[in-house]
């Protein structure tokens, strides 16, 4: 991502942003039925809070699998852009998935890492990301060269626009707050899956 070269920031330099606001900014830029996989907990609650879309999959369990699920969708539908929203604790649980994405090189995949350095939903216990583990550096070292921290909201939107128009895979790191989500996703996994498949045109 050339925006990255223009605005090189480390995790420490990146602005701490509002998770719900960033999610709304992402969703507002999706004009072509892009798929979004919301990871466990607040990541998918805020995705639902940003307004339900038929192309959203809200992952209610299976912590760490937002990126693999998004990779599966990206491999199945190469014409569609696919986003994974994954928390830092979740990504730490499944770091090997970054290497798999790097070897598969899906040009239509963008991973958004929402990093508050903590396991927020369980009480805010510190994650390794809160003690110096840099998930964007890990993504780069995994072979995902187009990985960068978003310096601020404007940089985030520029990076999303690149992920929507240029060849990926991309990884966008976002420092986020620890706010409670505004809404909770209805807990009906079979309906979520059915809606998503219809949203992707797989079921009529």
């Amino acid at each position: 991502m050339s925006a990255i070269q223009n605005q090189p920031v480390s995790r420490d330099q990146a602005k701490v942003m509002r998770r719900a606001d960033l999610t709304r900014r992402l969703v507002a830029r999706l004009k072509h039925e892009e798929a979004v996989i919301g990871g466990i907990g607040f990541s998918n609650f805020d995705l639902f809070g940003a307004g339900h879309r038929a192309q959203n999959f809200y992952m209610l369990g299976s912590m760490g699998l937002a990126v693999p699920i998004a990779l599966g969708v990206a491999l199945a539908q190469k014409q569609r852009r696919v986003f994974a929203l994954e928390g830092d604790g979740s990504l730490l649980m499944q770091l090997g998935a970054l290497g798999t994405v790097a070897t598969q090189r899906p040009t239509n995949l963008c991973i958004v890492v929402l990093d508050n350095g903590a396991y927020q939903i369980t009480g805010g216990q510190m994650a390794a990301s809160g003690a110096g583990t840099d998930l964007i550096a890990i993504a780069r070292a995994s072979g995902l060269a187009q990985s960068a921290w978003a310096a601020d909201e404007t940089a985030f939107e520029e990076m999303v626009d690149r992920a929507l128009t240029e060849d990926g895979p991309f990884v966008i790191g976002c420092r986020i707050d620890n706010a409670r989500p505004e809404k909770q996703t209805p807990r009906d996994p079979s309906r979520i899956r059915d809606d998503f498949m219809r949203g992707l045109g797989v079921k009529k």
Binding site: I69, A70, G72, V73, L75, A76, M197
Partner: peptide
């Protein structure tokens, strides 16, 4: 398994 689940939902 996650990849297989995503692929199924995408029609593969």
């Amino acid at each position: 398994l996650g990849i297989a689940a995503g692929a199924w939902m995408g029609g593969l």
